[in-house]
C-alpha cells in the first residue's frame, strides 16, 4: 500500500474489550490528511481506548488500523514514527525542565545531535515556552504543561497528532492558548490532528469534522454544520416544532441517548462514565498543579 495517497487514519471494525466490557465496538473511522478531526462522546464512550489502539498501546489485529497506509499491528515502529501523542493525563516529567522534557523526545526519536538543540528550541518556541524552558516542569501551570506536551510531540515532526482532551482542567484563557497553538502548528506544518474534547464550543469552532461516539460505537459523523442540520431534519421528521436552531450540544445530547428519544438509557450512561473515569479526570486536573 502506498503512503502518499493513503488517508491519515483508516480504522475499520475496531473493537476492544476490557474483560467482558466492550469499550470500543466495531468502530469505522476515516481521517483525511490535514484535517482537524474531533472525536466526541460522553464519559466512557471509548474515545481514549480508540486513541490508545491507534497509538499501538493496545494490541489490535492486523488490518484494523492504518496510519498513512502503515498497519498499526504489523509495523508498530513505522506507525509510531508518524505519530505525536498527548495522553489524557498531564504527562510531562515534573522533575525535569521544559527543555529536558522535549530533549528526551528528540533523543528517542533519533534527532541527530547536531540539529537537536535547534529543533528542541523551535518546538518550544512554537508553543510559546521558549522563555521558560529552563524552569522545572513542576513550576508550570496546567496550560503550560499541555503546551509543553505539544512541544514534546512536535519535536519529531509527526504527521498525525493525537490529542486526548488537550484542554481538560484548563481555564478558558489557557484553553484558547492551547487551541491557538494547535491551529498555528497545523497551519505551519500541515499535520493532521485527531482530538477529543468535552467542550462542544471547541469542537464547533476548531474542528473540521466530528465523529460522535457512544457505548463504543459511531453515532454520527460530519462537519459541525452537517451534524446540526441533520438534527433539524430529525426533529422535523418526528414532528417536534417550535424548537430553536440546535447547538452542537443538542446534537451531543441527542446522540448520547440522554435526550428525548432515548430516556431509558440515562442511568446506564452514568454507570458507564463511572468512578474510574471521574477519578482519572480529577487526578489529571490536580497533578502538577
Amino acid at each position: 500500500m502506498t503512503t502518499e495517497s493513503a488517508p491519515a487514519l483508516n480504522c475499520t471494525g475496531l473493537s476492544y474489550s476490557f474483560g467482558d466490557a466492550k469499550a470500543v465496538d466495531g468502530l469505522d473511522l476515516l481521517v483525511d490528511e490535514g484535517e482537524v478531526f474531533g472525536l466526541l462522546g460522553p464519559n466512557g464512550a471509548g474515545k481514549t481506548t480508540t486513541m490508545r489502539a491507534i497509538t499501538t498501546l493496545l494490541p489490535v489485529p492486523p488490518g484494523v488500523i492504518q496510519v498513512f497506509g502503515h498497519d498499526a499491528s504489523r509495523h508498530k515502529m513505522a506507525v509510531r514514527r508518524l505519530l505525536g501523542y498527548v495522553p489524557q493525563q498531564l504527562s510531562a516529567d515534573a522533575s525535569l525542565t521544559g527543555r529536558e522534557n522535549v530533549q528526551l523526545f528528540a533523543r528517542v526519536f533519533d534527532v541527530p545531535r547536531r540539529e537537536r538543540a535547534a529543533r528542541v528550541s523551535q518546538a518550544l518556541d512554537a508553543v510559546g515556552l521558549g522563555d521558560v524552558a529552563h524552569r522545572l516542569a513542576s513550576t508550570y501551570s496546567g496550560g503550560m504543561v499541555r503546551r509543553l506536551e505539544l512541544a514534546q510531540a512536535l519535536v519529531s515532526a509527526p504527521r498525525l497528532m493525537i490529542l486526548d482532551e488537550p484542554t481538560i482542567g484548563l481555564d478558558p484563557i489557557a484553553r484558547d492558548s492551547v487551541w491557538d497553538r494547535i491551529t498555528e502548528i497545523r497551519a505551519g506544518t500541515g499535520m493532521t490532528v485527531l482530538v477529543t474534547t468535552h467542550s462542544m464550543d471547541e469542537a464547533d469552532q476548531r474542528c473540521d469534522r466530528l465523529a460522535l461516539m457512544h457505548l463504543g460505537r459511531l453515532r454520527a459523523l460530519g462537519t459541525p454544520a452537517q451534524l446540526k442540520s441533520e438534527l433539524v431534519a430529525h426533529r422535523r421528521e418526528s414532528g417536534e416544532t417550535g424548537l430553536s436552531a440546535p447547538s452542537l450540544e443538542d446534537v451531543f445530547r441527542y446522540h448520547s441517548g440522554s435526550g428525548l428519544n432515548d430516556p431509558g438509557s440515562t442511568a446506564e450512561n452514568e454507570e458507564r462514565g463511572a468512578f474510574r473515569d471521574v477519578r482519572r479526570t480529577r487526578r489529571t486536573a490536580s497533578r502538577l498543579g
Binding site: R81, F109, D110, Q122, V155, S156, A157, I185, G188
Partner: peptide, 15 residues
Amino acid sequence: PDRRFALLLTPPPPR
C-alpha cells in the same frame, strides 16, 4: 512556508 516551523517539517532519519 512558516519559518518558525522550518525544522519541524521533516522527521528525523530513523536509527
